[in-house]
Structure formats: structure tokens, C-alpha cells
Design a binder for these strands. Sequence first.
DNA 1: AAAGACCACAACCGCAGTCGC
DNA 2: GGCGACTGCGGTTGTGGTCTT
Length: 284
Amino acid sequence: MGRRPCCEKVGLKKGRWTAEEDDRLKKYILANGEGSWRSLPKNAGLLRCGKSCRLRWINYLRCDLVRGNITTDEENLIIKLHSTLGNRWSLIASHLPGRTDNEIKNYWNSHLSRQIHTIRRRSGNDDGSVIVDVARLSLPPRRKGSRGRRSKEAETAAREKTVYGAVDDPAEERVSSNDGIISKTTDVGGSATLSFDNDDMSLDLDAFLDWDNDNDDDDIKVTAATGGAEVETGGECSSISCSFRLDSPWNWESFVDGEEWETGEDLPAAAVVESDAVISWLLS
DNA sequence: AAAGACCACAACCGCAGTCGC
DNA sequence: GGCGACTGCGGTTGTGGTCTT
């Protein structure tokens, strides 16, 4: 004998909840408490599956939910927790009061994974090595509803609204360590160089230069070098250099071993990319 | 102005773990 | 110990809103 479905499917309503349904469910649970999801719909006078009621309550109607956008702190925490816990959303959610596993899962899938999506298999290379697209890692998430490539104006406007690592003092540079992930914000004129010592890691130089070429205002200039020799385009590179205008706050996320690095300097030898750790984290 | 593309998020579905009989 | 009910979790899908063309 097979498992009985959680509820009789016939005649039950599906899809979006109405305000009246929400009201009924909320009143019932406030009066009778959570639980007994199977019998709840009938008792509350709802033509819904018990699982649907439970989900609606947990993800939307509960009083202790935090409304509003995920903050930068929460985002950093999610990234950190995901690096150690993987897709165990309920466990991750337990560390973020007022946030639900569904909310975090959706946020990850729609915002963070797209940034993480910058890791790609190197085409034509079957040794499992990967490419990290630093340009895309650095771009803020797209706004809802946008499609395809942004217009230059929209791209510039969105970048100006970027809130990554806001810096109060223009001369200040902040570096935060996060289990091998360094988030670096630079908003002072100068340059920064990111070097990869590991052959398994490289930059998608084409994408990076394409992106740079789309910026008319010259707020960021990119040059690239392979083995110390500058190249103009194409291929992959072992290091990049970027110069920043004074009024162009920018954020770098890279994956190094926790050592700070200074504007205008190469990464210290101890701060080479830990490709294995990064790859396993990104692919987890 | 309209159509189509794309994204964010709500909701659904199937599976697995736990509990009680 | 076996079985079914219940619950919770994670993956996936559907829908509505927004933006571009």
C-alpha cells in the first residue's frame, strides 16, 4: 500500500494566497498554536493542503519575521555559513533571526549564486581547472526586472548605489577576512594588483577587458599582464592591475589566504589564491 | 505603446527522518 | 520491528513585476 498523500488533492486550492486566506490562517494559529498541519486547513476553514498552510505561516505570516532587504552583514554571514554548511538552508537560517530558509535559498539562488557563477570551466580544458571572472564578481547584483545587458547609464547608476563595504574615511581601506575570503574596498586613487600563483586559477581576461571598455568615464582602468609582460586583450592572465579615480569607490572580492594586501602592491607571496579551497567552496 | 525577456520570490513537490501505534 | 502519519527540508516551478527593445 502506497503512502497516503498529505491531503486530499481534489478540490484544494493552489497558487497565491489571498488576504482572506492569510487572515484565516493567522487567526487560527494565533488562537490554537502551530502544529497539526494536516487537520489545520479543515479546522480553519481553508481549502488548502496542510503543507501549504505550514509553508505560508513559516515563510510569510509569522510575527517574528524580518522584512526588508538582506543587509550586507547578513549577506556576508550567509556566504560564510554556506561555505561551511553548504545548501543546508534551514541551518543557515537558524543563524539569521527572522529570516527563513526559503528566503535565504531564494536570495542565494537569485543574487549570490550569480556572483559565484563567475566560476566557469575553462573551455577545452579537461583538467578540471577553472576561471574566476573578477569583473563579474565585482559588479553589484542586477535590479529586479532588468534583462540582458544593462545600459551604460543603468550600469553606472547601479554601481554608484553599490553598498559593499561603505567607507567613511576616503583615505581608509578596509579589508575583512572571512575564512580565506578577503573583501577589499578601495576608494582612494591608486592601483591594486591581484596575482595568481597557481596555474589552476586565472582570470577571464576577455570579459574583464570587455567590461572595462564599456566604461566611458574612465573611473577604472584595467591593464593586464602575463608573466610580467603587459597584454592588451585576449586569453588569460596571471595578474591584473587596476587604477582607481578618487571618487570611484570599488570593492574587490578575491580569495586569498587571509593576508592583507596594500594598494599598489602585489599580493605578498603568502597570499596566493588557494584554488582548491576556493573551488570546493564555490562548487559546494 | 506594446511585446517580449528576464528576474525575484512565492509556492509546490518529492523525499527522508522521526514518532507513535 | 513494521507500518503509516506527520513534519521538515531542499530542489524546482510558476507567476507577476519591471525593464529593454
